[in-house]
Structures are given as C-alpha cells and as structure tokens.
C-alpha cells in the first residue's frame, strides 16, 4: 500500500488533488482511498489531505502518519514542522516552488524535488492552481500509473476547454521532472 500526504492552503485544491490521485489509481484497476483533514475551512488556512493506493480493499481510516510521499502545494508550509513529520526514510518530497530542487534540498537539508507548478498552471490554465501540475509530476516521478489515468480522472470533473488545457498542462509537466526517479520508493 502506498500512502501520500498532500499539504496546501485552503483554495489550492488540496482535497480535489487527493480525490484526483485516488481516482486515477482507480482508473488503473487499483483500490483507493482519499480524504481531507480540514482545519477551519477558510481560504489560506493550512489543509492536509491523504491518499492510499493498494491492490486490496483499504480498511484503515486513520490519518496518514508515515507517508512515502509528500506533495507540498505551498513552500511556505515547509516551515511548519508537521509538514515533514513522519515521512518514511528515503521518501519523496515534491514542492511547488519557483526555486530549484538543489536550493530547496540545501535549505531543508533533505532531498526535495521542486516544480514551478503555480507558474505552469498560470501559463497553460490561466489560473494559479498548482494541484494538477504537481500530480502530473508525481506520476512521472513514481511511474505509478500513466498520465492518461490522471486525464481520465479529470474527465469525471471537467470537459471542453478546461479539460484540454489540463491535459496540455499534464503533458508539459512531464518534461520538468526526472521520470522514474522515485520508482524504487513507489515499489518498495
């Protein structure tokens, strides 16, 4: 079973990101579970969401305390200790940031992968919502499932121009990260 924790701020589509990732996993024939841990439900407040992916039905309903992967939609949240809590040894951290992976890795003294997700989304979607770009990078890094699974998940929610733009965003992002770099973690 693979456990992922998504950190972001209210309004960044954290819960939607969790639902999309779980739905993409479902589209490839896996069992999935995704749920939020809302704080006070307001724009800008820290929000955490959880995803579990497995080849068997998932029964546990506790929060994800020891994720294999962290997806951080707002780099400002890296200053909150809870954001990095519990990540398994060798786990992957994907951060929405205009800075380089090397800069983040040096500052936080642990390996991090950066993606300028807000800028990419602004360019292609016309909206600064980083979630789909980060999910596309996550799928490319882990090789957990093809990008088409994410497009299928999006097609449950969007159509027409919005779906087209998101599909272009998903394709564009795959060139920004090292495909398969997290494959071993994902298959551990």
């Amino acid at each position: 079973m693979i456990e992922v924790r998504i950190h972001g701020r209210g309004g960044q589509g954290n819960v939607v990101a969790a639902y999309l990732l779980a739905t993409a996993a479902f589209e490839t024939g896996r069992h999935c579970q995704a749920f939020p841990s809302f704080g006070a439900e307001r724009r800008g407040a820290p929000v955490t969401a959880f995803v579990r992916i497995a080849d068997h039905p998932i029964r546990r309903r506790c929060q994800v305390a020891t994720p294999a992967f962290l997806v951080v939609q707002d780099a400002g949240l890296l200053h909150i200790p809870a954001t990095l809590d519990g990540l398994i040894a060798g786990g992957g951290i994907l951060v929405n940031s205009p800075r380089t992976s090397a800069e983040l890795t040096q500052e936080y003294a642990r390996p991090m992968t950066a993606l300028p997700a807000t800028a990419l989304a602004q360019d292609i979607l016309g909206r600064p919502v980083p979630n789909v770009a980060l999910l596309s990078a996550f799928l490319a890094l882990t090789g957990l499932m093809p990008a088409e699974a994410l497009v299928k998940a999006l097609a449950h929610r969007f159509k027409g121009d919005v779906l087209d733009r998101n599909t272009r965003l998903i394709e564009a992002v795959t060139h920004h990260v090292a495909a398969g770099a997290w494959k071993e973690i994902a298959h551990a």
């Binding site: 749920f35 039905p57 998932i58």
Partner: peptide, 8 residues
C-alpha cells in the same frame, strides 16, 4: 471519516 472519504 466516511462522508468526505472517496473510496472504491
């Protein structure tokens, strides 16, 4: 725990 959980 149930109402807001997406699952199979």
């Amino acid at each position: 725990v149930l109402t807001h959980t997406l699952e199979t």
